[in-house]
């Protein structure tokens, strides 16, 4: 089995914003994803326990502030870009992860962000990604995740949001992007994680069928996980499927050793980073979800001799437990 190339991955993330990287066209073509990219990089570094020394907090917070869209009251992905719910969640998550020393999390634009997100919920409980109306269960998760970190969920929003999620449940146990849509592992993750944040997992009609569906995502000969029946495996599903199984307490329903082998086989041995399938181009998205997946798998290993290699990641939020333990969980205590 290929070993885990820790130092190369750290270097890989470090280089994502280097002068050399900036010489390639692709760097500029990904501006619209920069805030998400930053979050993925931060998750890698914090899981490897080298966050602050690699990416100083001051620089990161300056960047985040430069992406603040005061017209909308949310964060864009890059300075001058429009606010979107995806980049707003990433900005909130990064700020939360960096607040290691504090007891109570603090966010510079908290009130505006809360009203921005709440304003994106529609009558039927769904959330749109921005003011232009795209609907997707991804955005429900994004909204509810961000509000949960901010400690600002409320009863009506949660109950309508959860109702919408439950309309997306299918006969195979999985969930889709909107009611009627086919089950897809990434959509299963966002729906299950939303139910987990809102303490609503009991609403799942048939947990066994859902977990069977999730376990069927592991395929041979590679041992990797796919996102839907009869599709190719891809490293990012190591996160979408594993986190769901972990939330549902069924991580043992797939073969962890085979999966670990597959994930490790997707490393770029020269340049660091992970890709979707062995031999392909790496990117920070797959690097994040490959390493977060490995962290979940590590939680299964009995033998912890030598201490943990990876910081444990909370499957519901895709952030370290050390961060997620800092905010209150739904339902809030009535005080």
């Amino acid at each position: 089995m290929t070993e885990f190339l820790r130092d190369k991955h750290i270097q890989y993330v470090k280089d994502l914003d280097s002068k050399i990287t900036q010489k390639s066209y692709e760097y500029w073509l990904s501006e619209h994803l920069r805030m998400n990219g930053l979050y993925w990089g931060v998750v890698v570094l914090v899981t490897l326990d080298v966050l602050e020394e690699t990416l100083p907090k001051k620089d990161v917070f300056t960047y985040i502030e430069s992406c603040w869209d005061s017209t909308q009251g949310g964060y864009g992905s890059f300075p001058g870009h429009d606010a979107h719910i995806l980049s707003t969640l990433s900005a909130i998550q990064i700020q939360a992860i960096y607040q290691k020393e504090v007891e109570e999390l603090d966010f510079p634009h908290k009130n505006e962000v809360v009203s921005y997100i709440k304003g994106l919920q529609r009558e039927n409980g769904s959330f749109q990604g921005d003011t232009f109306g795209e609907i997707d269960t991804r955005f429900t998760y994004t909204a509810i995740n961000a509000l949960s970190i901010l400690g600002e969920l409320d009863t009506e929003l949660v109950s309508k949001g959860v109702d919408f999620i439950m309309k997306c449940e299918n006969f195979d146990g999985g969930f889709g992007m909107v009611p009627g849509a086919e089950s897809h592992a990434a959509q299963v993750f966002v729906c299950v994680a939303t139910l987990s944040i809102t303490s609503s997992l009991h609403l799942i009609k048939n947990k066994e069928i859902l977990c069977e569906w999730l376990s069927e995502r592991q395929v041979l000969p590679s041992g990797g996980l796919n996102g839907r029946p009869e599709k190719l495996p891809d490293v990012c599903y190591s996160w979408w499927v594993l986190s769901s199984l972990s939330i549902l307490d069924k991580l043992s329903w797939i073969d962890d050793k085979k999966l670990k082998e597959y994930i490790l086989g997707c490393q770029d041995e020269l340049g660091g980073g992970f890709c979707d399938r062995p031999g392909n181009q790496t990117d920070v998205f797959h690097t994040c979800f490959g390493i977060a997946g490995l962290s979940l798998l590590e939680s299964l290993e009995q033998d912890s001799a030598g201490g943990p290699v990876l910081n444990p990641v909370d499957p519901t939020y895709c952030m370290p437990y050390s961060t997620t333990k800092k905010f209150r969980k739904w339902p809030y205590d009535k005080k």
Partner: peptide
């Protein structure tokens, strides 16, 4: 996000 693109070494 890169999907299904072969890694090339220049």
């Amino acid at each position: 996000m890169q999907h299904g693109i072969k890694r090339t070494i220049l």
